[in-house]
């Protein structure tokens, strides 16, 4: 199959998350229905920001695994990772620890105080 030739033609992270890919050339839906711009419950929240940025960073990581010399792509990844750090911190402040490492900022053991993500409404 042809290699993807560029990493710079991208959807915005929130649109990429909704569609399941950051890259328009790989966006091949079943039938004619596509997901709307921002996933349901998360629009406009710090949670939505983290999901979108985190998704974009993961998508770009897979791209860079097979295109390790794409310097432009790597710069985009670094920008995304910086944004992800901010979004992660905002999320933790608002909704609770995402990783055990986050517990340094808490006065009690937050890990089991908040819902796990499979619980209805746990996906914030």
């Amino acid at each position: 199959m042809p290699r993807q030739t560029t990493s710079t033609v991208q959807y915005k992270p929130e649109d990429g998350l909704a569609r399941g890919t950051l890259f328009p050339g790989l966006d091949l839906p079943f039938g004619i229905t596509q997901n709307p711009g921002v996933p349901n419950v998360l629009a406009g929240t710090p949670a939505g920001e983290l999901y979108a940025i985190g998704f974009a960073a993961n998508e770009l990581t897979l791209y860079l695994d097979t295109h390790p010399r794409d310097a432009e792509g790597f710069n985009i990844l670094k920008e995304l990772l910086a944004l992800q750090n901010t979004a992660h911190a905002e999320y933790v402040k608002r909704y609770g620890a995402l990783k055990i490492d986050d517990l340094t900022d808490f006065s009690d053991y937050d890990w089991t105080q908040k819902d796990f993500p499979w619980v209805l409404g746990g996906a914030r």
Partner: peptide
């Protein structure tokens, strides 16, 4: 639809890996 699209992206990456 999200999960399905991820399969398409992974297929592309494995193809590039084989290349």
């Amino acid at each position: 639809r999200f999960l399905r699209e991820r399969e398409i992206v992974h297929y592309q990456r494995f193809g590039e890996g084989l290349g």
